[in-house]
């Protein structure tokens, strides 16, 4: 199997490094000079968080073809776990946040492994329905969580989580997520995932252990969702089970499909575009017709799908994300 050079962000002259430094510096400068107010800063952080979660789903669905409608459940598991950790051990200072995030990531990963092993045997729509069912069950559990752990608050939500997420954190983790997904996809492992997406039976017949690859991809994707969840919990300092219901899984799926299946650049762009659109409509629309916001949004979605069913960047990437031999 052909080996790809792994993506080295810190290689001198790497476009990705320069680009990300420039973007980061500009945004940080705008934040420090107070051109960007805390509200917009929160929106930008949210966009980054959604992008991390969507990258996870893109790995599961876009690259491996495993249809998941329960992504928000893993997002929620990460959020609640990390919030619990930072609430229960508040005295560790700076370490509490990374510790909480790690706990969230691993909680999502372990549950994804336990759930994934049995249900990844299912194909296409059936897998979608099973993950949807899992998402619903998790939502009911979140709503009843206060019976076991009172501070999780159940249906009325969990309060008093420290506000630890700031834009630099989100930016660094988004960069990390992009690098992880990029290096996974352009490797022998990634080729195996693509072949499973195209035809599982055929790829098994040439010796690819489909179960193994599907499970690794599912667990990794869900861990990214868990990371995003942990960041989200500490962004708003309040968690509600409704933030992790079926519709939120759909939101992430929308981003992956609109960005283009199997495209890292597309997913990140779509996530940012999605967050800005939803908030932007709030600003653009006159106050009298605010309730039209959610009417315009699905209309744009339908029109977009009718005009460009393959998504914005389906199957393509920005050049700097590709291995050298793929560049043009």
């Amino acid at each position: 199997m052909k080996r790809f050079n792994s993506f080295n962000l810190f290689k001198p002259g790497s476009t990705a490094l320069i680009l990300s430094l420039i973007i980061f510096t500009i945004i940080e400068a705008l934040i420090i000079t107070r051109v960007i107010n805390p509200y917009i800063q929160t929106i930008l952080s949210l966009a980054g968080i959604v992008a991390i979660s969507a990258l996870g789903l893109n790995l599961i669905y876009g690259y491996s073809g495993q249809f998941s409608l329960g992504h928000a459940a893993f997002y929620g598991i990460g959020a609640y776990t990390s919030a619990l950790v930072t609430c229960l051990i508040p005295k560790t200072g700076f370490l509490a946040f990374p510790l909480g995030l790690t706990a969230g990531v691993f909680a999502s990963g372990i549950i994804a492994l336990l759930i994934g092993l049995p249900i990844l045997r299912l194909k296409s729509d059936y897998l979608g329905i099973a993950t949807l069912g899992f998402g619903m069950i998790m939502n009911v559990l979140f709503k009843n969580s206060h019976r076991v752990i009172p501070i999780m608050g159940g249906a009325s939500g969990m309060r008093g989580i420290a506000r630890l997420t700031s834009f630099p954190w989100v930016f660094c983790f988004l960069l990390l997520a992009v690098i992880v997904v990029r290096n996974l996809v352009y490797s022998g492992f990634g080729r195996a995932l693509l072949s499973i997406r195209e035809d599982e039976l055929a790829s098994e017949s040439v010796g690819i252990n489909a179960t193994k690859y599907k499970t690794i991809s599912f667990v990794t994707g869900c861990m990214l969702a868990g990371l995003a969840g942990g960041l989200y919990a500490h962004l708003y300092s309040y968690l509600n089970p409704d933030n992790f219901d079926f519709l939120k899984s759909i939101d992430v799926l929308l981003i992956v499909v609109i960005g283009g299946m199997g495209s890292i650049s597309g997913t990140v762009l779509a996530a940012i575009g999605w967050a800005l659109l939803l908030e932007g409509l709030r600003v653009i629309l006159p106050s009298g017709i605010q309730e039209w916001r959610m009417v315009v949004y699905p209309l744009l979605l339908i029109i977009f799908m009718l005009v460009k069913p393959s998504g914005a960047m389906g199957g393509t990437e920005f050049n700097f994300l590709k291995p050298e031999e793929y560049r043009r």
Binding site: L254, V257, M261, L299, L301, I302, M305
Partner: peptide, 13 residues
């Protein structure tokens, strides 16, 4: 998947 997304769009609408 495109039709599925459109279906979700119609539903939200």
């Amino acid at each position: 998947i495109s039709a599925l997304i459109t279906a979700i769009g119609v539903s939200l609408f």
